[in-house]
């Protein structure tokens, strides 16, 4: 387990460093896929095979595909990479990196001052996970179902293109700019007049 864990964690850290330093979005996404795969390998070495499979299916499958769809739809390409190169000057990232490094050093100090005993890795099989998930955590499963439903509805509503409405009643007051515009004068035709004309 040990060598597997160390190799995959080195790969995970290296590929994550590559993710946050790339200029081109597609390169960053490819390194992100490598990072997710190696994290899945870490989970396998920690005795969690079900979660390792889910990591690869959901993260490296679904979420990466979502990102790639957005990159494709927005047509982010070479000019985005050029712009990123202009934005990521050293004076931009040095100070946040130093601050986060201080926090990281504190956390590592906290981790390595306590007692350290060797961890026995034993596999927690999916059967136990499923019994726990649908036993004591059943209310949380239902709540996460609500959350996913809200996420789907929210994404569908936010991502909808708002067409300019052609009807004059809907046009009046849809946005601020249109509110400011004078509305075309409509000649009022009442029912009595039409009856008289008839």
């Amino acid at each position: 387990m040990s060598t597997l864990f160390y190799i995959s964690s080195i790969v995970a850290i290296a590929s994550t460093i590559m993710v946050i330093t790339r200029y081109h979005p597609v390169h960053a996404l490819l390194y992100l896929a490598v990072s997710f795969l190696s994290v899945g390998m870490i989970f396998l070495s920690l005795g969690a095979p079900f979660v390792a499979a889910l990591e690869i299916i959901v993260y490296a499958g679904a979420i990466i595909v979502l990102f790639i769809f957005v990159v494709m739809m927005l047509n982010l390409g070479q000019e985005t990479a050029q712009q990123e190169k202009e934005w990521l000057k050293p004076k931009v990232w040095v100070v946040p990196s130093a601050l986060v490094l201080v926090l990281l050093a504190e956390m590592l100090l906290l981790l390595f001052t306590g007692s350290q005993q060797v961890m026995q890795v034993s596999q927690v099989d999916p059967r136990k996970v499923a019994l726990s998930l649908y036993g004591e955590y059943i209310i949380a499963v239902e709540l996460i179902g609500f959350l996913l439903m809200a996420g789907i509805v929210g994404a569908a509503h936010i991502g909808k293109h708002r067409k300019p409405s052609l009807h004059r009643f809907l046009q009046n007051g849809d946005t601020e700019k249109e509110k400011a515009m004078p509305v075309r004068e409509q000649e009022v035709i009442s029912n009595e007049q039409t009856v008289l004309h008839d």
Binding site: A48, V51, F69, L147, I152, A155
Partner: peptide, 20 residues
């Protein structure tokens, strides 16, 4: 692992709304 499943579902919902 159960908690990781919840984080996974939350991340999926978050990334869909964020990308929209």
């Amino acid at each position: 692992q159960v908690m990781f499943l919840f984080i996974l579902a939350m991340a999926a919902a978050e990334v869909s709304v964020g990308l929209a």
